[in-house]
């Protein structure tokens, strides 16, 4: 894998929840403007790794880690590095759609407003662009002032993506974004991810191997907290080097 243009560089990352170790010696480089899928059975540490990329693990009391996570060549776990600043650059979309109890407009404008954007015109511009980029604008343009809870699950998830895009991040982390959605809504989100990768680096955790094969450029396979194999998606699904990967992909376990 080419060394240049990596967004994240992870070196010797070990992570513990209390006494339980969740990640073992992870070394990984995430390339820019590509879709990277993290796959593996439940409890293999893929979500944990994802959450360590925007320091969401900070919020868990007994979570400890050592190793190095570099974003744009800077150590994000350095004491002087600002997690809040990092999260404006590395956005996150969660498993279950979780819009805030506000109007559709206010949901998308939430991030920019928290950053201190007050100008109404500017906010309208940001919201509109974010909704267009998340392929939601045509469906909601007449009801921006209405509650976000009036939207369907798929629309809510796209709203959450729009909310993240509104921050104009470099990276979007997605933690099983389609696992709570029906196939049609899932297809729409997958299509959207293909569009988004032109502008953003996307790292997606998924349980659905077909999904990983369909949408990702690179795939990382995790097992029991170890990174088993990380390569181009074609290679992982076509000719994996590791026996364990092949077993998982072909459905022999997991």
């Amino acid at each position: 894998m080419e060394q240049a243009n990596n967004v994240f560089e992870i070196e010797k990352l070990n992570l513990f929840y209390g006494n339980k170790q969740a990640l073992f010696d992870i070394d990984m480089q995430v390339p820019k403007n590509q879709v990277t899928a993290l796959i593996g059975p439940s409890g293999c540490g893929k979500s944990t790794l994802l959450r360590s990329l925007n320091r969401m693990n900070d919020l868990i009391d007994n979570c400890k880690m050592d190793g190095l996570v570099k974003y744009e060549d800077q150590d994000i776990y350095n004491k002087v590095y600002d997690a809040i600043n990092l999260r404006t650059k590395v956005g996150m979309v969660f498993q279950k759609p979780n819009p805030f109890p506000m109007s559709i407009f206010d949901n998308v404008a939430y991030g920019p407003r928290c950053q201190g954007v007050k100008d109404k015109k500017q906010l309208q511009e940001i919201v509109k662009r974010a909704l267009i980029n998340s392929a939601l604008y045509d469906e909601v343009k007449d009801r921006l002032k209405e509650s976000a809870y009036g939207l369907s699950g798929g629309q809510q998830q796209r709203l959450c993506i729009a909310r993240t895009i509104a921050m104009s991040p470099d990276v979007i982390l997605m933690d099983e974004p389609t696992s709570a959605l029906d196939p049609i809504a899932t297809a729409k989100i997958e299509e959207l991810i293909q569009d988004l990768k032109k502008e953003y680096t996307i790292i997606i955790v998924t349980h659905n191997m077909q999904q990983a094969a369909r949408i990702s450029d690179n795939t990382a396979f995790f097992l029991m907290g170890y990174l088993v194999e990380f390569d181009k998606t074609d290679v992982i699904f076509g000719d994996p080097k590791e026996k364990k990967t092949e077993d998982y992909i072909t459905g022999r376990f997991g």
Partner: peptide, 23 residues
């Protein structure tokens, strides 16, 4: 989820508490 979603958008703890949690 909602606290995390707010924090993941770069909001501070105070912003999260007053804009989302209190709502």
């Amino acid at each position: 989820d909602f606290r995390q979603a707010s924090l993941a958008l770069g909001a501070t703890k105070t912003q999260t508490t007053f804009k989302v949690v209190l709502k």
